[in-house]
């Protein structure tokens, strides 16, 4: 069973990203939306955790939410794939289960 984990909170606000990374099985994917976007930066305190996550999971981020927060793509960790809402919908069809970490 494949799972798409959706994280919508900043790693500096809640521990939902950490909970997700602790429990997500290798191969399941992670999608960062809303304030979850703040985990994409390559120079933040969450960057090492995210680098490790990228070794085990495909990681996606919602481009309109990235843009809304003024996070430049040039400051993003390598290996994260940007999707728009059409891509978001497509992802949800490619994984069997959707887990929102609220």
């Amino acid at each position: 069973m494949s799972v798409l984990h959706i994280v919508n909170k900043s790693p500096f606000d809640r521990n939902s990203l950490d909970s997700c990374l602790r429990l997500a099985r290798p191969g399941s994917a992670i999608l960062l939306i809303e304030d979850g976007i703040y985990a994409v930066r390559d120079n933040s305190a969450a960057a090492d955790r995210m680098r490790q996550a990228l070794e085990n999971h495909p990681v996606y981020a919602l481009q309109p939410d990235l843009q809304a927060r003024g996070v430049g793509e040039e400051n993003m960790l390598d290996g994260i794939t940007l999707v728009d809402y059409d891509g978001f919908v497509k992802l949800t069809t490619e994984y069997d289960k959707l887990q929102s970490w609220l």
Binding site: I6, N8, T92, T93, L98, S100, L102
Partner: peptide, 8 residues
């Protein structure tokens, strides 16, 4: 086929 949750 899919239930998606949006919340806080």
């Amino acid at each position: 086929d899919r239930l998606i949750v949006f919340g806080d």
